[in-house]
Amino acid sequence: MAAYPDFPPRLLRGYSAFRENRLPHESARYRILAEAGQRPRTMLVGCCDSRAAPETIFDAAPGELFVIRNVANLVPPYDPDGEYHGTSAAIEFGVMGLKVRYILVMGHGRCGGVQAYMASRDAPEGADLGSGAFIGKWISLIAPAEQLVCEDPVDAAERQRALEFASVRQSIENLRTFPSIKNLEEIGEIELHGAWFDISTGELHVLDHETGHFNIAAP
């Protein structure tokens, strides 16, 4: 392989391993995807946290998942105001263009975005938390989720996990503010689901639509 001194060496090593090990087994699938286009059945809204990669967690093949990742796996409410909306644009494409059957919002444990929201919420007025030009505004989308917290945990870790769960519930509710999703769900052509991944144990917790609680998925 040619030397590229300015390119991250770890990525080149990973690409080399992909070419040698995985690509030979997936080459036919890649050719079909290139010629026929992608038709994933599932769209997944996940966090950009490097520890919670959906394709790894679900052992997904190329073309299986249409993945949207952002800070804290948030879905904003439908708001076509003429501004830039990357997450909403991707959702629109997945629903209208790819015609996905399932939409899954997946949170995860120890989420830095949720932690930052809690820190900003609990900080003294006027405190500078260094949230930058964009993050503070983005994570404010978590605020309505506080009304959806089902548990009444005691310690900080449990409070954060409860809010991580609630934020997934809130994002699902926000998905229903998109007219196309609301209509498709009502006629049974699209399903909305929630999940939460425990980074420390590797366990997946799935949202029970009837109870609103998250239960560990059976392997």
Rank of each mutant, 00 (worst) to 15 (best):
1 M>C: 14
4 Y>I: 13
5 P>G: 05
6 D>N: 13
8 P>K: 08
9 P>Q: 14
9 P>V: 12
10 R>K: 15
11 L>V: 13
12 L>K: 11
13 R>V: 10
15 Y>T: 04
15 Y>C: 01
15 Y>V: 07
18 F>R: 02
18 F>W: 15
19 R>Q: 13
20 E>M: 08
21 N>D: 09
22 R>Y: 11
23 L>I: 01
26 E>K: 04
28 A>K: 05
28 A>I: 03
29 R>N: 03
29 R>S: 01
30 Y>C: 06
30 Y>S: 02
30 Y>L: 03
31 R>P: 00
31 R>F: 00
32 I>G: 09
32 I>K: 12
36 A>L: 09
36 A>F: 02
39 R>F: 12
40 P>L: 08
40 P>G: 06
41 R>D: 08
43 M>V: 05
45 V>M: 01
47 C>P: 07
47 C>V: 02
49 D>T: 05
51 R>N: 00
51 R>W: 08
53 A>H: 13
54 P>D: 04
56 T>N: 13
58 F>K: 00
59 D>M: 10
59 D>S: 11
60 A>L: 00
61 A>P: 00
65 L>D: 02
67 V>Y: 06
67 V>Q: 04
67 V>D: 01
68 I>R: 06
70 N>L: 05
71 V>K: 01
71 V>I: 11
72 A>H: 07
73 N>V: 04
74 L>H: 04
80 P>F: 01
81 D>I: 10
85 H>T: 02
85 H>K: 07
86 G>E: 03
87 T>W: 05
87 T>G: 09
89 A>Q: 05
90 A>L: 09
90 A>S: 15
92 E>A: 10
93 F>E: 02
96 M>Q: 15
97 G>Q: 00
101 R>E: 15
101 R>K: 14
102 Y>S: 13
103 I>H: 05
107 G>A: 10
108 H>R: 07
108 H>E: 08
108 H>I: 01
108 H>K: 04
108 H>M: 04
116 A>T: 11
120 S>W: 10
123 A>T: 00
123 A>I: 08
127 A>G: 08
128 D>A: 02
131 S>L: 15
131 S>D: 12
134 F>H: 15
134 F>K: 09
136 G>K: 07
137 K>W: 14
137 K>N: 14
138 W>T: 12
140 S>I: 06
140 S>F: 10
141 L>K: 06
142 I>V: 14
142 I>G: 03
142 I>E: 07
144 P>C: 01
145 A>W: 14
147 Q>V: 05
148 L>D: 02
149 V>R: 06
149 V>H: 11
151 E>A: 12
152 D>T: 13
153 P>R: 03
154 V>D: 15
155 D>M: 11
157 A>H: 12
160 Q>Y: 06
163 L>P: 05
164 E>Q: 09
168 V>M: 06
169 R>K: 11
170 Q>I: 08
171 S>W: 05
176 R>L: 13
178 F>S: 05
178 F>I: 04
178 F>Q: 01
179 P>K: 06
180 S>L: 14
182 K>N: 15
183 N>K: 15
183 N>Y: 11
183 N>D: 15
186 E>F: 08
186 E>Y: 12
186 E>K: 15
187 I>S: 00
187 I>W: 12
191 E>T: 15
194 G>A: 11
194 G>E: 03
195 A>C: 03
198 D>I: 07
203 E>H: 13
203 E>I: 13
203 E>R: 12
208 D>W: 06
209 H>I: 10
211 T>K: 08
212 G>T: 09
212 G>H: 11
214 F>I: 00
214 F>D: 00
